[in-house]
């Protein structure tokens, strides 16, 4: 009898141990759910949209500044550009995101996490199974290829294979050569998304931004259809842009807000608090925008 009890006890302990080992890391945070964006950060940039010529706070380099200054909003009238989706490092800035998990039903191991963005309805997959990133010659996409791991209570995600995107919706580009590192941190019903973008082509320094969300248990996400249409007749091979030095709108933002023009042109220095001292020594623009 004793031996039978003993054997049973051992089996129970082994089973319990096996169960614990098969479980995800102890107290691993669950990010699943629908989260609604809080717009106390960067509201003008996120909903109305950035103003033309406003590159402040972005570490863009000279090449990116030249591209941004050539950019024309008329590009959005081109049929093939009307349904271009926001890139993965930008898409979660709007309204809701929904997060869910794919778990192996036998082992309960977390295989992947998925995020659907309200904006454009795009869905990204974050592989949690330790797989390698594809070779460089594989396709690059708006969502890229993401792998993740939990570091304590924070989900860290590394994304490569991005196609060209934008840092701001006024022509500031992010190249296909960029890599993105994200951290998703949950504190009770608040989720914080940190984005760290390294782009050797178009940034002087890595760019960092974050967004906050609140859990919305009753939230629903609406569809986001898009169908291209021809809005206006255009000549063959027409692509809207401004020739260097001919964009008439670049000073508008500085004038309207009373900010030194030089400070609106961006660059790594404009990201840091001490840049305020520099701004105070700059001449202010004259007159209101026309």
């Amino acid at each position: 009898m004793r031996s039978v009890l003993s054997l049973t006890a051992v089996r129970a302990v082994v089973a319990l141990a096996a169960g614990f080992l098969a479980m995800p890391a102890a107290a691993q945070v669950n990010l699943a759910g629908q989260w609604t964006g809080m717009y106390h950060e960067d509201f003008p940039d996120r909903l109305p949209g950035p103003e033309l010529g406003d590159y402040g706070g972005l570490p863009l380099n000279d090449a990116n500044r030249m591209r941004a200054e050539a950019w024309s909003a008329s590009i959005l009238s081109l049929p093939l550009y009307q349904c271009r989706v926001h890139p993965v490092d930008y898409a979660a800035s709007f309204a809701q995101i929904r997060i869910w998990e794919t778990v192996d039903s036998e082992t309960q191991q977390l295989e992947a996490m998925h995020i659907q963005h309200f904006a454009w309805g795009t869905i990204r997959t974050i592989w949690m199974d330790g797989r390698e990133h594809p070779p460089e010659y594989a396709q690059h996409t708006a969502m890229g290829f993401s792998t993740g791991e939990f570091i304590g209570q924070t989900l860290r995600v590394r994304t490569t294979h991005l196609k060209e995107g934008w840092l701001r919706r006024n022509g500031v580009a992010r190249s296909w050569n960029a890599t993105v590192t994200e951290h998703f941190t949950r504190r009770e019903d608040v989720l914080t998304w940190h984005v760290y973008i390294e782009d050797p082509a178009y940034l002087e320094e890595p760019f960092f931004r974050n967004r906050d969300y609140v859990l919305n248990p009753t939230g629903r996400m609406g569809p986001y259809p898009c169908e291209s249409v021809i809005e206006t007749d255009m000549p063959e091979n027409y692509f809207p842009h401004y020739l260097p030095g001919e964009n008439p709108y670049l000073q508008e933002f500085a004038v309207n807000h009373g900010i030194p023009y030089e400070a609106t042109r961006g660059g790594a220095a404009t990201m840091y608090p001490e840049y305020m001292d520099t701004i105070r020594q700059m001449p202010l623009p004259e007159g209101p925008a026309q």
Binding site: L80, C83, V85, Y137, A138, Q139, T141, M143
Partner: peptide, 28 residues
């Protein structure tokens, strides 16, 4: 396809497998 990351795929002379977005960026 919706989002321009699938549908017709393009194998370039040099470089990575591409979709419409890559060709549009290049043409731009």
């Amino acid at each position: 396809v919706y989002g321009q990351d699938g549908g017709t795929l393009v194998i370039p002379g040099h470089g990575r497998l591409s979709g419409l977005g890559d060709v549009l960026d290049y043409r731009e």
